[in-house]
Every structure is written in structure tokens, then in C-alpha cells.
């Protein structure tokens, strides 16, 4: 009886329905909680580019108070809705998916970190980036001072760089090397920041546009350089609109959401 084809098929069918139902139930029941966990994680990362995040800090409250987000296109225009009329929310944009499109078709989120006393004044602009490391993708959140020239802080992350070598881009010490560096030269030309080949451990020998390299991880460093250079260029049209607005002293509140 237990070996008959009918029994085997029936058993398999019941098992599939029971297990499938169970998993569907779990997935639906946990969906909201998972979305919240993911959002908290993204927000923590973005905020950590501009401030020290302590364990258990009220991330959502800080986010609501200090961050104003918007999305721009390749030309630097602010986009508020998709073509199908769907409202755009900057944090919900998947930078990895945008990275797969041609640069002209991508959407670029901008997170403005507002001043604590004066919520109309921008303290820092945080832009997400995405690129290729040695083994897999790398990504970053780069915070720029309101002058849009000086780097305030960076947070790198990666999918599969080698631990102890390329994966060191997530070390606080490596990320701190970028603080205070500049992305535009005195003539106003974009030069980006380059991580050099080789590691000296002496930050004083580098100018405003170079940082110490990663010994044994030159290819990851090259990926970081390419990512920074490309994305600073992608965001340049938007930076220009801010600078023009600042120059003519137009209240830029008009374009913030």
C-alpha cells in the first residue's frame, strides 16, 4: 500500500500543500517586520556617513527630523514620480538595480542632512554609489559638505571582497582617510579622489585628491576609484543646479521636498 504510485503521488501532493502553505503564511506574516528591518538598516548606513551612530539610537526619529530626500535624473532635474505616476521615494530606490541600467536612464537619490537648529539649512549632501569591486559589487554612501567640494565622510560596503584585503574598505580607519578630501580643484574641475597603489601608512604625503592605498587590494581600490569618479560625474549636473541657486541666493527650499 505504502509503495503504490497513488500513495506516493498523494503523499507528495499533501506534503507540498502543507509545507507551501506554511511558508506562504510565514512570508506574509513577517513581511512588514522584514521591510522595517531593511529600512532601518539603510537609514542607519546613510546616517552613519555624517554622524556617529550609537547602538540603539532612535534611527527613525533622527531620520524624520534631519533627512530630506529627493531623486534626480541624469540631467540633474528633480524627479518626483515615475512615468506610470507612482510616487518616488528616495530610500526605496534600489541602487543596485539602477546600476544595471544605462547611466542616462538611472535615477539618483540625494539625501540632504539638515541643520539641527535651522531645518532649512543643509549640513551635508549624502549620495549613494554603486560599482564593481574585485569579486562582486561594492557600494558607498558619500557625504559632502554644503560647498559640494569637501568630503565629510564615506561609508563603503561590499558583497564579497577578500576579508583582510579588499574587505578593509569597510574599516573605519580606511574610510576616515577620505574625510576632508576634495573632489573639485581650484579651477572648479572635477578631479575625484584616487586611492593610490601601495600603502605607506602616512597620510601627510598625500594632497587633497589622493588617499593611502590598500596593500594587497589594489584591484578593490581601483574599483573604489572608478565608482567615485563616475558617480561624482553623474551627480555633477545636480550639484551645478544647487551652486547656481546658491549664487543667485535663491531660497533653495523651493526644490526640497
Amino acid at each position: 500500500m505504502r509503495q503504490s504510485n497513488a500513495y506516493v503521488i498523494g503523499f507528495a501532493a499533501i506534503l507540498t500543500v502543507v509545507l507551501g502553505g506554511l511558508l506562504a503564511l510565514a512570508a506574509t506574516g513577517l513581511r512588514d517586520k522584514q521591510a522595517a528591518a531593511e529600512r532601518l538598516d539603510t537609514r542607519t548606513k546613510i546616517l552613519s556617513a555624517v554622524m556617529e551612530i550609537e547602538e540603539g539610537a532612535p534611527i527613525d526619529a533622527i531620520w524624520e527630523e534631519r533627512i530630506r530626500s529627493l531623486v534626480v535624473d541624469f540631467e540633474g532635474n528633480v524627479v518626483t514620480a515615475l512615468e506610470n505616476g507612482e510616487q518616488l521615494v528616495a530610500e526605496k530606490l534600489d541602487i543596485g538595480k539602477e546600476f544595471d541600467k544605462a547611466p542616462e536612464d538611472r535615477l539618483f537619490p540625494v539625501y540632504k542632512f539638515m541643520n539641527e537648529e535651522n531645518p532649512e539649512k543643509v549640513d551635508a549632501y549624502i549620495i549613494p554609489m554603486y560599482g564593481n569591486g574585485l569579486w562582486d559589487n561594492i557600494w558607498a554612501f558619500v557625504a559632502l559638505e554644503p560647498d559640494l567640494v569637501t568630503v565629510r565622510g564615506v561609508r563603503f560596503d561590499h558583497q564579497a571582497e577578500t576579508p583582510g584585503l579588499g574587505a578593509r574598505i569597510t574599516d573605519a580607519e580606511v574610510q576616515a582617510r577620505f574625510e576632508g578630501k576634495k573632489i573639485y580643484n581650484d579651477l572648479g574641475e572635477l578631479v575625484s579622489i584616487e586611492m593610490v597603489k601601495g600603502e605607506t601608512g602616512d597620510p601627510s604625503i598625500y594632497d587633497d585628491y589622493h588617499v593611502d592605498g590598500l596593500s594587497g587590494a589594489t584591484l578593490t581600490a581601483k574599483g573604489v576609484n572608478a565608482m567615485l569618479e563616475k558617480y561624482f560625474a553623474y551627480y555633477e549636473p545636480y550639484f551645478k543646479t544647487i551652486k547656481t541657486a546658491d549664487d543667485s541666493e535663491v531660497e533653495e527650499a523651493a526644490e526640497s521636498i
Partner: peptide, 23 residues
Amino acid sequence: IVQLAVVASLVILVDQVLRAYLY
């Protein structure tokens, strides 16, 4: 196959719970 189905379902459950509570 039955063993595998049971194990796989449990593992997916664990994965879902981890994603929700220990992201």
C-alpha cells in the same frame, strides 16, 4: 525528497525569521 522538503521548509522559515528580527 520528503526529508529534503521538510529541511528546506524549516531553513526558509529560519531565514525569514532572521531577516525580520536579526537583519
